[in-house]
Computed example of a mutant assay.
Amino acid sequence: MHMETKSPYWVFPAVKRLVTLFYYLVLAALVIFAAMSSLKLLNAQTGPFPLGEGQPNYVSVPVAWAPQSDKTIVTAGEPRLFLTPQKQTGQLQVPIRSGPGLLMSILGLVGLAGALWMFFLLRRIFSSVQADSPFQPAIARRIAAMGFLFLGQTVVELLIKLALWQQTRPYFKQITIASQTSLSVDIQLDSPWLLGLIMLALAQVYRRGIEMQLENELTV
């Protein structure tokens, strides 16, 4: 009884409750985001493309521009310190019915939907885990599904971001910040493709664990 109290298997119910909490939080965020985007689309009005504070029925596109001087600044004292100016960032407010506005809304929906699906699969995994029989084919399938989910989300987000860069070019031509300074969309292509590959590899390892468990059961 004392050993069961110290057993690490108490972690699974705790993590399951935490995953369930995040699942419902992401679900609520997805519903709210979809509702707000729908309201903005229904009440959208045409207007200018301001750079600065938030505007009704507008969405924000993260942008960046190069500093006026890219020379490294060197201090006079010892030890010598070096400061390299980096890009400046801001938020370009565009109407939701514009190309960039629709793409940003879709990008947000894809990200939230992917997160919701991930937590759904995690809930199913922790619900299926048993202390006496941890290796189950259903869990291996769900781990593989998470891997394909991350890879698919990466491809979809990559296509949306490439389209977003293309759609924002006409609007950037209307804005002049300083001479020899050009605007660009400040969105990195850092979707979780590597995590997807790791999950697929983990699924293969898990399937091997299932085979070994079956071999041990047959031997006994």
Rank of each mutant, 00 (worst) to 15 (best):
Q93W: 09
T5S: 14
L21F: 08
Y206M: 07
I187Q: 07
K87S: 15
K161D: 03
P62I: 09
V74P: 00
E217K: 13
L151V: 12
L103G: 04
M36K: 10
P95A: 06
V19F: 06
S184D: 10
T219P: 00
I177M: 11
Q180C: 03
G99N: 10
V11L: 14
K87W: 07
M199Y: 09
V94A: 02
V220W: 09
S38Y: 11
G111S: 13
T219D: 15
I32M: 08
F12Q: 07
N43D: 10
P100S: 04
T75F: 07
E211C: 01
R124S: 11
A131H: 08
S69L: 06
E217W: 06
I139L: 04
F22I: 08
F150K: 01
K40M: 14
M146G: 03
E157D: 10
L189N: 06
K40Q: 12
S7L: 04
I139M: 08
M146I: 13
G47V: 08
A163G: 15
W65M: 06
V31S: 02
G99W: 04
V94I: 07
F49E: 12
A64C: 09
Q86C: 05
I187E: 11
W117D: 02
V220F: 13
R17H: 10
P67V: 02
L21M: 07
R141E: 14
P85W: 09
T5E: 15
F119T: 15
W65V: 02
M212V: 11
L122A: 13
A14P: 00
S105V: 11
A76D: 15
P192K: 09
A113P: 01
R97L: 13
L194Y: 05
Q86V: 05
F49C: 14
F22C: 09
P137H: 06
L194D: 04
L39C: 02
N216M: 12
S182R: 12
S37L: 14
M199C: 13
A66H: 08
M3G: 00
G108S: 07
A35N: 00
L83Y: 15
F82G: 01
R124H: 11
P50E: 06
Q93I: 02
I125G: 05
A14F: 08
P100Q: 06
F120N: 07
V129E: 04
I32Q: 02
R208S: 14
Y9V: 04
F49H: 12
Q180G: 13
S105E: 10
I160V: 14
Y24T: 03
F148Q: 05
P13I: 08
Q55Y: 05
L112G: 03
A163I: 01
P95N: 03
A140H: 09
P134D: 04
P67T: 01
S98C: 10
Y23R: 09
A113R: 01
F82A: 08
L218R: 15
L39T: 07
L149F: 04
I177N: 05
Q68E: 14
K16P: 00
R124T: 01
P85I: 06
L195K: 11
L18M: 08
E53L: 09
